[in-house]
Design a protein around this nucleic acid. Structure first.
Lengths: 152, 152
DNA sequence: GAGCTATACTTGATTACGCAAGCAACTATA
DNA sequence: TATAGTTGCTTGCGTAATCAAGTATAGCTC
């Protein structure tokens, strides 16, 4: 398609690549572990959180879903026994989501194949230097590091 | 969040940036022009197609939606009068989607603000050289250029 | 031709979200 | 201590997308 500026082309590639890669990642994750990409995402956040638990609102912010999205997503993970609720003393409004033993196991299993998939579909396209470059460039985009550096 | 390799970090930034940017773009596009990001995407494809018309299946492939997704998306655009159906002589299975006059006008209007938004949220983060670099890097990802080079 | 497979498209059911509204609990101000 | 505002969470409803299944046409092979 002609008549596009550099920015438009870059953006279109970004869009298409996202669609293609997430489709493929989702379907593999679904097939192997019965998890959504978002499920996985949330589990990983919890996995790295202090005490393996987080306030629901903080999960929402770090994975960029709305509060209601998180409520329903956690409903699912809770009924699978991967995550449990926990009251917060000191503030009765908040309920924590805690990773259960099963949840820890699940995420450790799933991570392996999923990381391999990410490597295959995404990382392997670049040299180490290019990966760093890309990371830096992507890091300038809005909200690109919401999930990083939650803890230290 | 520690304990991530370069690839994982890059991927997460990619994911988050996509979520953040598309959310913002969508809501602006919706507010100003009553169009979905996908609607816009399809209209642009048609705009640049020969005769401003395409087979539905080709639209699907270039914007990375399924055939059924396209059927329903076009239902919407047709009932707004932005797109019309056209039979294909020579193959009765296919129906073309053609951009109407109103559709052309719509896309020309919408493009202006939308491109400005893309520039603001995406392009402006990078120098010209970096944009080219990024374009090249993104181009290596799966299906990143489905929408390009349909025609010429 | 008669049948087979492949292709283009549509339709029904389901799903994963978002938004708006509501409730309950915390905080600040008077 | 009342009152107002904010925050965390859930629920109802709408919507954009998917998959699976169905229909109709094309084209190939015998």
């Amino acid at each position: 398609m002609p008549a596009h500026g550099v920015t438009e082309t870059a953006w279109l590639r970004f869009l298409r690549a996202h669609a293609a890669i997430t489709r493929e990642l989702s379907s593999r994750l679904e097939a192997l572990h019965e998890l959504t990409l978002s499920d996985f995402d949330v589990l990983v956040q919890l996995y790295y959180a202090e005490g393996r638990r987080m306030r629901r609102i903080d999960i929402a912010r770090s994975v960029l879903l709305t509060a209601s999205g998180i409520t329903r997503l956690l409903d699912g993970l809770e009924s699978c026994g991967l995550v449990a609720k926990e009251r917060c003393e000191g503030d009765a409004r908040v309920t924590y989501a805690v990773l259960t033993e099963a949840g820890v196991k699940k995420i450790e299993e799933a991570r392996e194949s999923h990381n391999a998939d990410i490597e295959e579909l995404f990382g392997s396209r670049f040299s180490l230097e290019e990966r760093e470059q890309l990371t830096e460039l992507l890091g300038r985009l809005p909200l690109a590091h919401t999930a990083e550096a939650c803890s230290a």
